Computed example of a mutant assay.
Amino acid sequence: MWTNLLKTIILIGSLAGGVISMQVTCPEKMVNGTVGQSITLYCNYETSLPIADGLVIRWSFYTRQVPRPKLFYTYQMGNWFPSEVPEGKYEGTTAATAKNASIIIRNAETEDTGMYTCEVTNVPDVSGTISANVFAYIRGKPTKTTCIKQVENHEDYHWVFLSCSSKAMPPPTYEWQWKSSGGSYHDVEGEMNNRTGILNITNPMNMKTGIYRCTARNEMGEDVCDYEEKEDKETSSSSTASSTAIIIGVVIAIILLLVVTGVTVWFVLYKKKEEGKSTKTTAKSKSAGSYKAVAADSNYSTVASQEAFPSTINTTEVEVSEESAAYNKKTATPPPTERTSIELQV
């Protein structure tokens, strides 16, 4: 609607034969500042018509994060009106009297870095160069540094990311470190991107419990944020259960091994014992056989001796007969010579 109205005004002015032209300029194409300062964005304009209630000034802003210009400050009917910005963030000059459309940024922040566009119209003077640009570069050390953990679960892999971001100008570089409870910081394992602040821990098992610290740093200073990795109770319980199961399995395996070893040793000893008994029995049998053979030989030798040496027996018989004779002389009993002889022979 507003565009159509402007076109109508321009057409009317052209038909009337008037020369309508607006010239807007920004004398500084780039303005440098630091965080906390007040920064002035200069914008001047020239119009071929008297300044009236039709004068309108618009300031818009865009950055890489806000690629389309965003209107944030407007002058109309003698007053400035902010659009979706904190009250008192911007301050405009008295444009109606000085042909000056400049504004001041109070308490500048690094987020204020970007391209600003100053647009001026003075109905019906709406043609010509009605806008100009100025770039504001606000430097500051890293602030509002934040650390977050991100997890990506895929069918073939499982990744863990630690992401670090900070508000700073110029853009900071990032460094990740880790320490255990009560320890000191040292380099962390993983793939680190110093420009984006992303730490990629490709193996989740390398994600240790402790404190992960990100340091954002630029020429203006540095800032840190911490992320604490705590032990997962479910994982800990599962790990404990797994460890317990492993220990029980090892104990059972050891017991089974001892039982098998004991049975094997007992069987070997039993076998040896049985073999020993068998050997002793065989030895006894052989000894008994030998003894019988020896005894038989001995009896045979005795009989043979008696047969071979009869004189010995006769001598004995003579001695006994003599004793009997002597005895019989005393007792007047005939001596049992023949009986004695027979008994000795037996």
Rank of each mutant, 00 (worst) to 15 (best):
V120L: 07
N122R: 08
V123A: 15
V123Y: 15
P124N: 08
P124T: 12
D125C: 12
G128M: 05
G128K: 06
T129C: 09
T129D: 13
S131Q: 11
S131F: 12
N133G: 09
N133H: 13
V134N: 10
A136L: 11
Y137F: 09
Y137R: 07
Y137A: 10
I138Q: 01
R139Y: 03
R139Q: 14
P142C: 04
T143E: 11
T145Y: 03
T146Y: 01
T146N: 08
C147K: 02
Q150N: 04
Q150M: 02
Q150C: 00
Q150K: 06
V151L: 09
E152D: 11
H154S: 10
E155Q: 14
Y157R: 13
Y157T: 11
Y157E: 13
H158E: 14
W159E: 10
W159K: 11
W159I: 15
V160F: 00
V160H: 00
L162P: 00
L162E: 00
C164R: 02
C164T: 02
C164D: 06
S165Y: 04
S166D: 04
A168D: 02
M169C: 11
P170G: 09
P170E: 11
P171E: 14
P172L: 05
T173H: 12
Q177I: 08
W178F: 15
K179T: 01
K179C: 06
S180N: 06
S181G: 09
G182F: 05
H186G: 15
H186I: 09
D187F: 12
D187H: 13
M192A: 15
N193H: 10
N194Y: 07
R195Q: 14
T196G: 06
I198H: 04
L199P: 02
I201C: 00
T202Y: 07
N203Y: 05
M205H: 12
M205K: 14
N206P: 02
K208P: 01
K208F: 04
T209G: 14
T209W: 07
I211R: 03
I211F: 07
I211S: 05
Y212Q: 00
Y212G: 01
R213G: 01
R213Q: 15
C214I: 03
T215K: 09
T215M: 06
R217W: 06
E219I: 13
E219S: 15
G221F: 06
E222T: 10
D223A: 11
D223F: 05
V224H: 13
C225N: 07
C225P: 02
Y227A: 06
Y227N: 04
E228W: 06
E228V: 15
E228Q: 13
E229S: 05
K230L: 15
K230M: 12
E231D: 13
E231F: 13
D232R: 03
E234V: 08
S237C: 05
S238D: 14
S238P: 00
S238C: 08
S239W: 05
T240H: 09
T240K: 12
A241T: 07
S242A: 14
S242Q: 10
